[in-house]
Amino acid sequence: MSLSVDFKLSLPDFELKVAFDAPSGITALSGHSGAGKTTLINVLAGLATPDYGHIETDGRVLFSSALKINLKPEQRHIGYIFQDARLFPHLTVLQNLKCGRWFRRLPMNPSTIEEIVTLLGIDHVLSRRPSQLSGGEKQRVAIGRALLSEPEVILADEPLSSLDSDRKKEILPYFEMLRDQMNIPIVYVSHDADEVTRLATTHFELTHGKILSEKSNP
């Protein structure tokens, strides 16, 4: 699987013009704040619309100005992991995990859910509310929720930056696992050099709305 991206988006004080391919594994996007990282992945998620361009995953067109295609966020099958976990406060952890499957009418296999729950080590918090979780637990639930919606691409916007260094160490291995075990592109935004070095299979640097360089990681 891979994601190919080529678009331009003009905002009143800012222009974002990028073209890149994200193969399976983690494609890290780094850059200073204000470089347009979050705007870029909002475009991929369908939360912002570019002026023109083309975005597709393995032949499935998500956006194309030429073909006049612009899939809605819910039609893109893109799992989005945010900096703040954004769990739904009125639902339990288990309901949070299941809601993507419910929205997409995917089968509620207990074994599928159990597998992810065990993998992320969140079996002891399933009946809790998000307000009763630690920062690391929240982020693990958010990862599980995105995975269970069976995405074809995962977007992660600084998923570790609101955690302290111990919690970061707790979550990092899960992203390595996603990278090594799931055959899907993961676009991972981060300004943390260590994180990028450790996780990225492909690495782009974004400066002033443009992709400056592709850096290969060993």
């Binding site: 998620a45 739904f88 809601c99």
Partner: peptide, 11 residues
């Protein structure tokens, strides 16, 4: 939170 739900497939 509403955007998050849409990314999870909610219309």
């Amino acid at each position: 939170l509403e955007e998050t739900a849409r990314s999870l497939g909610a219309n």
